[in-house]
Write a protein that binds this DNA or RNA. Sequence first.
DNA 1: CATATATTTGCATCAATGTTGCAAAAGTAA
DNA 2: TTACTTTTGCAACATTGATGCAAATATATG
Lengths: 132, 132
Amino acid sequence: MEKLLKSKNLRATPFRLEVLTIFGKYENAIEMSTIESELGNFDRITLYRTIKSFIQAGVVHEIHVNGDSKKFALCAEGCENLHHQHDHIHFHCTVCQETFCLDTVEMPSLNHPTFTISSFDIQAQGICESCN
Amino acid sequence: MEKLLKSKNLRATPFRLEVLTIFGKYENAIEMSTIESELGNFDRITLYRTIKSFIQAGVVHEIHVNGDSKKFALCAEGCENLHHQHDHIHFHCTVCQETFCLDTVEMPSLNHPTFTISSFDIQAQGICESCN
DNA sequence: CATATATTTGCATCAATGTTGCAAAAGTAA
DNA sequence: TTACTTTTGCAACATTGATGCAAATATATG
């Protein structure tokens, strides 16, 4: 865990390790409020900046679930300095409200005659395995 | 224009028509700030609720461009009561910052062995035709 | 056309979230 | 241990989303 942070050029402070541990406790993407309730006392701004630096360093990525709410999930390998490289789609179960990173779905290829598509994200909705 | 609103069961008030006209002036998706600067005086809450009712009625749809900013664009046919049916991807040009609804890109099909995918959205990034 | 009804607007007020500046604290390297 | 850089915690502020309510407006009905 410390290694992970240092490999991204982030100092391994107790607070950051605590937040990282919370991510590790959950299988799927989590909301800010989940992190907040897992933490005992914490400074709101510090947490906000922690998440921000995690995103910038490529430790976690942000997922826009519906129109409004957002969640966060640990990155896989290969994410660095805001250049997130995710070979998975994000799936939101409309029953249990869980948000999954699905690397079992093959990413399609997109082509446009005149536009150059350098990257794209896919957010899917539906019903997950256990709710099915 | 009045017909459009009434077909969605929205009353055709002057303010709503004014906002709709602004959408008509722009080819691509626009930000809230663009609407605000086009309007002379306006009430912030009323505009907020106008956009909200447009989205709920299927007149416009919301586009999440990057992690943060959002834009709005007129819906095509077939969007009703929050059941937006868009057969296009959203493309954000990293040069000119314009956001396009690209119906020239074929929507791929997604499959998962155990999850039921009912709908999905695609946000792409890259360089648009005129910036290319 | 006038009126009754339902919706919309404008205003006040509030909540949640994101942001900045700065001094103290803590981590890192020499 | 010291010097330097980053992070934290606090205050203060900006932006955005949301609700309640009375006045204004739109629509339907007689």
